[in-house]
Computed example of a mutant assay.
Amino acid sequence: MGDEASALGSSRQAVLAAATELFAERGYDQVTIRDIATRAALSPAMVMKCGGRKRELFLRSATITPPSLPDVPRSELGVRLSAPTRTACVASWPSATSIPWPNAWAATPTPGSARSWSSPR
């Protein structure tokens, strides 16, 4: 039993490694289960047994690493994280003074309601 489980684990690792390499090289649409099987030196049936469908393999192989947060006080974090987006908006907006900044929205309550908020005018 131990050898069989070890072989299956080894096959799973080979399938995931092959899928990750192929998706990175060719993109999702250009990769087939047969391609992954060839790269992993396994049969297509074994790829399906160890890794599942192509979409499942893609989702497991596509890792997203979020950027590290800047070392700033928590109260400034939103402004610092949104700075690149605001800069891009300013470059493409007709009038930089008319841009409705999200951080200003949160500071402008609508009269008569503590829960409603509106953009600054």
Rank of each mutant, 00 (worst) to 15 (best):
I33R: 02
D71Q: 13
M48P: 00
A83R: 13
S43D: 09
R55G: 05
L77K: 11
T38Y: 06
A41Y: 07
L57E: 01
A62N: 13
V72K: 09
K54I: 02
R34G: 04
L57Q: 05
K54N: 04
M46K: 12
S68Q: 15
L77R: 13
T85V: 15
L57G: 01
P44H: 05
M48A: 13
V47Q: 01
M48T: 12
T65E: 15
V47L: 04
A41E: 14
D35F: 02
P66D: 10
L77H: 09
V47H: 01
A62Q: 13
R53T: 10
S75D: 13
I36S: 02
T32W: 05
S82I: 08
V47A: 01
V79S: 13
L77S: 07
P44C: 05
F58H: 14
P66T: 09
R80G: 06
L81E: 10
R53W: 03
G51T: 05
R39E: 11
A40T: 00
R60L: 11
L59I: 11
K54Q: 05
R60V: 02
L59T: 12
C50M: 10
R80E: 15
S82Y: 13
G51P: 02
V79M: 10
P44Y: 05
A40P: 00
R74V: 13
R86S: 08
R80W: 10
S82R: 09
A45M: 09
R60N: 07
V31R: 01
S43P: 03
P44R: 04
A37V: 03
D35G: 05
P84W: 11
T63C: 08
P66K: 12
S75Y: 06
P67D: 13
I36V: 15
L59P: 00
A40D: 00
R39P: 00
G51F: 02
I36Q: 02
P44K: 06
I36P: 00
T38C: 05
P73Y: 08
R39N: 06
A40F: 01
P73W: 08
A62C: 12
S61F: 02
R55K: 14
P44W: 03
D35C: 06
E56Y: 01
R53K: 10
D35H: 08
R60S: 06
E76I: 06
P44E: 06
V31D: 02
R74L: 14
V47G: 01
S61C: 11
A40Y: 00
A41R: 14
R55D: 07
G78W: 04
T85Y: 13
I64L: 15
I33L: 10
S82E: 12
R80T: 15
R80H: 14
A62P: 01
A40W: 00
L59W: 06
P73I: 07
K54Y: 05
T85D: 08
T32G: 04
L57R: 02
S68K: 14
L69V: 11
R86H: 12
G78K: 11
R55S: 11
E56R: 03
V79P: 00
A37T: 04
P84I: 09
R39L: 04
